[in-house]
Design a protein around this nucleic acid. Structure first.
Lengths: 203, 203
DNA sequence: GCCTTTTTTGAACGACTCTTCAACAAAAAA
DNA sequence: TTTTTTGTTGAAGAGTCGTTCAAAAAAGGC
């Protein structure tokens, strides 16, 4: 079945096979052969389309982060109200989107997070994504909170979201999406409502 | 220097070399030779004292978790007051103990967390430690909160602590222990105080 | 000073990995 | 049909890793 655009098809197959492999045996035991066999192609094709194993891994991480970003963006653009709370809820829910919260995605995400500590290319991806999340959170919190307080709230919420993902990756069976979202939303509420200082009660 | 008890000395050397290696090049690139060279011994000695690479890794993870447990236990046994808040603060501070929060320990901890998703021996260690933390948190929160609310608070605080560790591991340079502790303590406060209805203003 | 015991070495070995590339297959173009 | 182009294969090659084990080293005991 050559000639016509095989490249996007093969790339998708291989990225999905990579996630499946990481989910089942872990990144450390995910070899070129394992992955290519799972995708139903030969080992050589990985180097052909991704330039090598590293390229495949980077593409897989990029894919996950793009999906995550789109989940958040979609929810936010569908909002009717544009107050801070609505946006923050949308960001939280986007991070726990159905498509994002599977054992496969969570384990792959964590594997890449760990790898990114020692690989510059992955570290850059992680950093871009992270700063975008933080900026968004910070911007929303600043609508209602003083700047330093907003930064702390953003840092806390980002950490809480990552922590819930981390635990979800380790214990996929006892991971309750609904509860995770509820915990994160409550954190948003506590930051927005709990602060209401003595004087700044403009609502 | 043979004869006299070399075993505990070598074990300690090798465990520390393992953490140093994971910190610098990551678990994936930490080979027997890398680690043994760093410890100033030969490669064969790892198999001799730990039965193999897997044994060394398990021992290293056990070492980290024991240190973490002791940091928490020490702070709690030094408490004068025994109310929920004091204990929760102690648990938080123990988790961000100076000896625990180094790039070395954080990266090693995260590497093992990732590995434990696919290695039963490490998974058991993680699970034991995790349940102890959750139980402790839950018990303290229940002193002041209804049971379901206490469980959520415990889940949230555990996730927040792990999330802060996770981010500290990825960005050791911009990680501020003081701020991390402050964020976690504030979470405790919000759970304990925030819940109290309008009328219970005895505090 | 010699023997015993514990400790340590490092090269050999087998297994495994990623990459490369010449050859092959199959569809489109001529 | 024949040629060209795109896609694919799989084995060879070069390298790395963990383990093993016979031999050596070093410190007590006598």
């Amino acid at each position: 079945m050559p000639k016509i655009g095989m490249e996007p098809i093969r790339r998708k197959q291989l990225i999905e096979a990579t996630m499946a492999s990481i989910n089942e045996v872990g990144l450390a035991d995910s070899t070129i052969i394992q992955i290519s066999r799972r995708a139903g192609v030969s080992a050589g094709i990985i180097s052909h389309y991704f330039g090598g194993k590293d390229g495949l891994l980077e593409a897989t991480m990029r894919h996950i982060l793009e999906d995550l970003g789109m989940s958040v963006a979609n929810r936010r653009s569908a909002l009717k109200k544009h107050d801070a709370r609505s946006h923050l809820y949308a960001i939280v829910e986007g991070n726990f989107d159905r498509s994002q919260v599977s054992a496969e995605v969570m384990k792959t995400w964590l594997a890449f997070w760990t790898s990114s500590m020692h690989r510059d290319d992955l570290h850059r991806l992680q950093r871009v994504n992270d700063r975008r999340l933080y900026s968004n959170l910070c911007f929303q919190f600043r609508k209602q909170l003083p700047v330093e307080r907003a930064r702390d709230a953003a840092r806390g919420l980002a950490a809480l979201i990552d922590g819930l993902w981390l635990r979800g990756a380790l214990m996929p069976q006892s991971f309750d999406i609904t509860r995770a979202v509820a915990l994160a939303r409550r954190y948003v509420d506590e930051q927005l409502d709990g602060h209401a200082g003595p004087s700044t009660s403009t609502g």
